[in-house]
Design a protein around this nucleic acid. Sequence first.
DNA 1: AGTTGTTATTTTAGCGCTAACATTTCTGTT
DNA 2: AACAGAAATGTTAGCGCTAAAATAACAACT
Lengths: 344, 344
Amino acid sequence: MASKSSQSRSRSKGRVTLSDVASMAGVSSMTVSRALNDPERVSEQVRSRVREAVEALGYIPNRAARSLAGQRSYSIAVVIPSVSNAVFSNVIKGIYDVCSARGYEILMGNTYYSVQQESSLIAKFLTHHPDGLIVTGLNMADSARALLQGAGIPVVQLMEVGEAEPIDLNVGISHRDAGAAMARYMLDRGYRRIGVLGAQMDYRAQRRIQGFVNVLADAGRYDEARIVTTSEPSTVHLGGQLLGDLLSAAPDTDAVFCINDDLAYGVIYECQRRHIRIPQQLAVAGFNDLEASACINPSLTSVSTPLYEMGRVAAQMLMRRLDGETIEQPVVDLGFELRARESA
Amino acid sequence: MASKSSQSRSRSKGRVTLSDVASMAGVSSMTVSRALNDPERVSEQVRSRVREAVEALGYIPNRAARSLAGQRSYSIAVVIPSVSNAVFSNVIKGIYDVCSARGYEILMGNTYYSVQQESSLIAKFLTHHPDGLIVTGLNMADSARALLQGAGIPVVQLMEVGEAEPIDLNVGISHRDAGAAMARYMLDRGYRRIGVLGAQMDYRAQRRIQGFVNVLADAGRYDEARIVTTSEPSTVHLGGQLLGDLLSAAPDTDAVFCINDDLAYGVIYECQRRHIRIPQQLAVAGFNDLEASACINPSLTSVSTPLYEMGRVAAQMLMRRLDGETIEQPVVDLGFELRARESA
DNA sequence: AGTTGTTATTTTAGCGCTAACATTTCTGTT
DNA sequence: AACAGAAATGTTAGCGCTAAAATAACAACT
């Protein structure tokens, strides 16, 4: 049988296969398969003969064949806006640590914040028949939603909770509540002419602003002129620019909530250049509480979000589902913490 | 044939397959395969009938079957130290953009800076029979090197060039030269008691320091007491700490080269707290020139490295190799640029 | 020795797709 | 009308593995 692979019509590249190992070890290929994937079900004797043969031949199993025969891929597809964003790279690390420990591969795809890209990415990933899927956020194209519902695999929606009925599982925080908490904090601190800076306005960012603005409005402190947003990707440099825009439009602003820490760093740097004292003349707050926020001068008041944890928990839920467990609580709100520091 | 899939002994989950589409469209399954993967070779008529059938049935192709039959996986394995590091997330983005545009999947694995993890990751990835492999750096375990050499697929070693004979293809910069360039710049600027701060001392970081120190030594300005390194992961906070260590050991230090920008930010913040004026009392330089480096106060002198570009070029070389092109120049040095700014 | 139950191994039959070859259908040419 | 050559489609035979059923081997009881 093994010799057949050298015949003219064969397409094989002469790779070492299971049956090569089998004939060397003097057992059937099924036994070799078991010896490798379920060693307890094979006698010690056979197990070691197989091990020797594998080493002698340099056998490398073929995942494609395994997936096809076993009807599962041992892979998890992850659909996020962008790898190069510090927020998501932390989330991915959480997912990765759990999945790789369990022998699952990660297929990662970037939507670049486009709902359309997201749909086509999901469609593409389904061709891999992943065992599970992790997507970002609760909002998605109807077509994508339908695909996921019909796929018959566990799906986790990540980053936010509470804004819509999840497709299946859901892990995140309430961005609306987080925005609101920050607004309340600022009002409590006595700030009254409060601005908001936003960039890369994805759904989560929008909801943070909504939550923030609603509280301001309830307190009679909402002023449209102080809301400055752009759809450009957010960068430190952009933070400085947006501050300039805000101060031109409303020079008497006494506090500013930045939709993420990067913008806030830019604001702090720009204030240093303009000799605006923080927080005396202008209070500044950020979002996500990246590592540098505790170190910058002045240290940055921010909302700490459990990024790594979200990834970890999402992956764990998926794993439990794949193990056949029923998940009693399909929606997990991991909460946030407002870290009050010098800047506000 | 198609009806066979509903027989008792079948393991299929009742998925829609190529031959289901074929019988609906009234053609053979091979024709459907062609209509989907090589549309030019099929008449417009058949093509649209197939398209309709695919939509009507909700057909999702099976990559595992495709890989197995076609003897290629349309995937590229990428082995890097850590996704959650800004340096590598930029590199990955470059790889991702090229690969996904060409229909290739990325399998990403983190070594967490361990040579052992790297080896086992490579072994694991080879079971996917990826069409190509991208690994970080020129140093790796002999076993890993052997695996790669024997795998018969194109391999790109990424991030650094010039330190060893590459296995196959190689894209990066000379970290040694970059370190040396920074040392020369600092000496030219008149600094004489120059320190070095390093963390997460991977091979690249070590070589940057070697290049830097060699130049100092040649100029008679090397002082071991001013080299402060740790194997801890580098963070902004750690930068401040290491500066403290350096100044305790050598208080008269007049300039400091940080092995990456994160450490440099930490140094700048710590100097602000200690009221050390930059660059008058202490000059500071970083490495990688992250986006924030141009915005921080004082703006940070750093070595700009083409991170995204490295990823892009590596992936492109791989693609060209997979297209059967011969690559005339297997080693590509993308170079670096020293960005002189206020901090030094 | 005969029956039963348990464990270890082999046999059989695909998983869903595509390479390679074979055949048919459609041009255009003389 | 006859033919060659190109283009479109069909047929056959796996790719390398595992689920399920079948069998063999072994221990544990009557």
